[in-house]
Amino acid sequence: MSIFQFISDFFRDSAHWHGQDGIPHRVLEHLGYSFMALGIAAGLALPVGLVTGHTGRGGNALALIATAARALPSYGLLVLMFFWLGIGLTPVMIPLVALAVPPILLTSYEAMRTVDPAPVDAARGMGMGPAAVLFQVELPVALPLILSGLRSAAIQVVSTTAIAATVSLGGLGRFVIDGLYQRNYETVVGGATLIAGLALAMIALFWLVGRVAVSPGVRGGR
């Protein structure tokens, strides 16, 4: 049986389209975990990256933290947290946040560091306060790079959120884990396809956000 056969059988089976174990519900669960992890990671990493990049200090410490976080194996961390904290959302969030932090941290730092200093100097010289300089002068120009960091984080998190299923939580990982357990390869392949689809959807989402949020003057200038 070909892989395409698996995929088409999986999506054509009407039993896969409703209920607790249906595709819509699992997709929503998956996105819920992913965006929660992404939100927490952005909440932690964006301010740190933006401030260190803005002041230009602490870049080395930051690179060290990011490299260390990258070296952590997500699945190993999950198992460790599971044995330590038991069943729940927290043991899942910790490895996902650890996964999302490095790209956000590094790109936001880099984005701020590479902002052209001339407009910043001009803005301060015109009497613009520090908050206005950050939000009205630096961020709009740094935005494309910041968004690219968020996008890499989102893609990685969406792909990795499948591990939630190994500690009895939901999400698209359920199809994969349960399918493997029941030797039902149609479900395994179907789940994997959905995960890949969501990762592509992240690319589309961030492309759209970029179109809306980034000024044509910044987009055109590169």
């Binding site: 052209d116 001339a118 100097d121 803005a123 015109m126 009497g127 613009m128 980034v214 000024s215 003057g217």
Partner: peptide, 23 residues
């Protein structure tokens, strides 16, 4: 106040330092 002082003085720099995201 420093920003009041600066707003009363126009400031022009070498490469103009325009805000590229603004028209």
């Amino acid at each position: 106040p420093v920003n009041a002082l600066r707003r009363s003085m126009g400031y022009v720099i070498q490469n103009a330092g325009l805000f590229q995201h603004r028209t």
